[in-house]
Every structure is written in structure tokens, then in C-alpha cells.
Design a protein around this nucleic acid. Sequence first.
DNA 1: TGTAGAATGCAACTTTGTTGCAAAATACTT
DNA 2: AAGTATTTTGCAACAAAGTTGCATTCTACA
Lengths: 139, 139
Amino acid sequence: MVNQAESILKSSALSVTSSRKKIIDIFLSASTALAHQDIEKLADQYDRVTIYRTLQTFLERGIIHTIPTTDNTIKYALCSDDCISSGHHHDNHVHFLCDQCGRTLCLDDVMIPVITLPKGYSMKAINMVVNGICKLCRA
Amino acid sequence: MVNQAESILKSSALSVTSSRKKIIDIFLSASTALAHQDIEKLADQYDRVTIYRTLQTFLERGIIHTIPTTDNTIKYALCSDDCISSGHHHDNHVHFLCDQCGRTLCLDDVMIPVITLPKGYSMKAINMVVNGICKLCRA
DNA sequence: TGTAGAATGCAACTTTGTTGCAAAATACTT
DNA sequence: AAGTATTTTGCAACAAAGTTGCATTCTACA
């Protein structure tokens, strides 16, 4: 019996350690994208440095991705299954940052529209981030 | 004879000081968006704290705006004339981050397309950032 | 089960950002 | 043009965020 965290690690050819499993579990049970600080609090039995290195490793392997924000913070979120299984990383949905509750949400149903760049520019990745008030805060 | 930096400060009802003029001049002569660190180096006769506070003031007055990035840095750029003169801040063009030279460019000609959010979400601001290789690096 | 190699924790450090307060500069009044 | 209220600046001290080297511990695998 292998759990989801272990299978993610194994399919990325990473050794299975308790800190890595814990951090993946945190992402799996989170409904929003998480800042480094959030993870530190939720996994406080592990060293700060371990969390930095683990997130770095996960980024390199494409297990998680970053979401750009207009304040100084970086938010991390699990990549979708699609994103992991394909070799290349692609993350073509819109992200939403609630100005009231501070949560970062993946709007999986809202695709990023195609845009045309000026001559001479090539595109490797695209991010679209909306700020506003989320469903829960408006209700 | 009033220079451009002074007229920007006066139209924002800010007192004219040498550090503020210097920082605006840096933005005026920069072809790309700048990180805090860039400004610190280019205005190293001024205290770090002064630069933090000046950028903060400029943001509040809508003289500059931030550009979100996927790495940990925030980049600042001068708002266009339109953006300054209208009361509200709007910055509806796409930003481009070159993965090779690291520069952040405003693609003034590429507008952010309109998207539809799911029910219950309200939009206050939107950012679109493209990573890739810029014109100059490809040439 | 033993061992090579990888991951972790610790300590020390660098960088980045913040706050309070005294000194200096600016804007405004007369 | 000088005096003064107010704003801005620089300094110092601090807090938070991120990095590096190295010894110890753990994992994967023979």
C-alpha cells in the first residue's frame, strides 16, 4: 500500500523521506497556494533549511510551481496531474489572489487566452494573476 | 525651467528632494523595469531606508507600479503618462521577463485580453507576465 | 545487513526589509 | 528674505528571510 505522496516522489525519482512526504501532504490537503511561511508553520517539526531545500527540489522536478504575486511573497502550489506527467511544465490557468483573505486560488476553469508577442520575442511560460475579492469573502 | 522629474513630483503633490529626483531620473533613463537592488546601486549616495520609503511613496501616488515575477524579486517601472494622469491606476499591458538577460520589459503594444471569472469573484487588478527570450538576446 | 550516496539539522552568516528618533531639508507665511 | 511648521532623511538597531558548509542521520540498494 503506497500513499499518494510516496507515489509522487517515486515518479519523480526522489528518495522518500518523512519531510518530503509531510510537505506533499500539506499541499494535497491545502485548498490554496501556500507561502514558504505557511509550510514552515504546518511542518514545524522540520528545520527551516530543509523546507527551503525541499521546495527547491520540488520546483526543479516540476512537482510544484510558483505563482507570481504583486506583494513580496511567492506562493507555491502542486502541479496538476497533467502538468506532472508531461515532460514540460505548463500551467495555463489563471490564478486569483484575494485582497481580503489573502488566499491564492487556482482557477482551473479559466484558461489563459492566447496572445501575440511582438516580432523577435519567444515565449516559454506565461502567468496571469488576478487580484480582487474571492467568492467566500463576498458571500 | 523645470525638469521632468520635478514636474512629476509636483503633479503628485510631493515635495521635491534630491533623492526623489534622482530615483525618478533613474527610472526615466532605464529601458527596463528595475528591482529595488538595482536602484540601490544606481543611487548609492542615499540610504537604503530612504530608497525603501521613496519607492513606497511613489507606489502609493501611482508614479510607479510593480511587476510580479516568478522568482523572488519585485520589479518597479514608471507608469505611463496615461496611467499617472487618470485618477485610477491601470496598467493593462503585458510584461515580459527575459530568462537570458534578466530584463523586465513593458510590452506597451500588447494588451491584456479580457477574461471571465467564475461567479462570485470580483476583479480589481490583473497582471500578465510572459517569460522567454527577448528581441535583443535572440538577435 | 552493510554500505555508498543522499538528505537533514545545526550553526553561522548574508541579504532584505522595518521601526524609532534626532538632524536636516523643504515649503510656506509673513 | 528670514523664520517656522512640517516633511524627509540618515542612522542605529532590529526582525525576517534566505544561504552555505559540514557533521550526522537516513534511504536505497546490493
